[in-house]
């Protein structure tokens, strides 16, 4: 860390206080099996948040990922289920990854070459992909996921649940990518000052295209470890994920206008939001939990963005 990571510390502190409070309210909270469940739950979001971090640091956004996850889950279900496609494991895995990559590329092409603002392009994709998912599934559920697919979501390798293992791998690769490769530093540079990036001859279009493609690919990875956790696939899978993932990233300290933020902060953001979600259940709020969750998510995202604007204004005044 080059600078005192005030934002990360802040989020970390809130996280700590929250865990402490919930633990006091309900001592069952920090039991190993609960922590394990929590990790499994937040694994797919951590994976997607990694991709979203690059997109947002570039100054773009991808809000199509919820529907993209839905379509990818539907694809996985129909390809794998014996009553539909009945294809082998590798076909399904590579099919989902490839489809995710392709959908991400479509987003990227819309933004980079058709010059549609990313929020509009991906909002369109959000609707289109949800529609396609419903068409694919004809409103039916895929209920016969074969065991080798379910294993991706509920299996354990070397004592670690598969989703957590995959998430750790993705996080490690993403952190390497962000801080140790030219591509990662260019992402920061472009988000920091797009005009300067152009003047300096950085390959802005290629970098953006790659970031959207990576987002799609990682959505595929997330779906592979999350959809098989359930025994059925239905057309509403992934609804609302885009907001959750964007909230994690922004709460984790990534500037919504691009240029600033770290994956460490984003991981804290993922943890914070996942814990809030679980904590509400542990506080025995019953049905009200999901209403509260949405309200809290909204407040968090507003607080984060406000904080970002305030610090940006301060920076602007110092820099002038």
């Amino acid at each position: 860390m080059k600078k005192l990571p005030a934002r990360e510390l802040g989020v970390g502190l809130v996280l700590f206080v929250l865990v402490l409070a919930v633990q006091l309210a309900n001592p069952a909270f920090l039991r190993p099996e609960n922590v394990r469940d929590l990790l499994i739950q937040c694994a797919p979001f951590a994976i997607m948040a990694c991709g979203m971090t690059f997109v947002i640091i570039l100054g773009e956004i991808d809000i199509s990922v919820g529907s993209m996850a839905g379509l990818l889950a539907a694809a996985l279900g129909t390809w794998a289920s014996p009553s539909h496609g009945g294809r082998p494991l590798l076909d399904c895995v590579f099919g989902v990854l490839f489809l995710g990559l392709a959908l991400g590329l479509v987003n990227g092409l819309l933004v980079v070459f058709a010059r549609v603002p990313s929020i509009v392009a991906t909002l369109g994709m959000l609707t289109v992909l949800r529609g396609v998912t419903e068409l694919v599934l004809h409103g039916e559920w895929v209920t016969d996921l074969p065991p080798f697919i379910r294993q991706l979501g509920i299996g354990v390798s070397g004592g670690v649940p598969n989703p957590v293992l995959v998430a750790l791998l993705v996080v490690a690769v993403s952190i390497t990518l962000a801080s140790l490769t030219p591509w990662g530093r260019r992402v920061y540079a472009i988000g920091s000052n797009p005009e300067a990036a152009k003047v300096r001859g950085l390959p802005v279009k290629q970098v953006k295209l790659a970031a959207f493609a990576l987002m799609g690919l990682l959505t595929g990875v997330a779906v592979l470890v999350s959809a098989p956790q359930l025994s059925v696939v239905e057309s509403g899978y992934g609804t609302g994920w885009e907001l959750f993932v964007v909230t994690c990233v922004v709460v984790g300290g990534v500037s919504i206008t691009g240029g600033r933020g770290s994956l460490w902060g984003v991981l804290l953001g993922v943890a914070l939001l996942s814990i809030i979600r679980t904590a509400l259940i542990f506080l025995r709020l019953g049905d009200q939990a999901s209403y509260w969750e949405r309200a809290i998510q909204g407040v968090l995202i507003l607080t984060a963005v406000l904080g970002d604007r305030v610090s940006a204004r301060r920076r602007a005044e110092v820099g002038a």
Partner: peptide, 16 residues
Amino acid sequence: LVAFLDLDAVENVFVG
């Protein structure tokens, strides 16, 4: 100045 304010001096010198 077309600098990248979020990057440090080394990165500004070498980016690209």
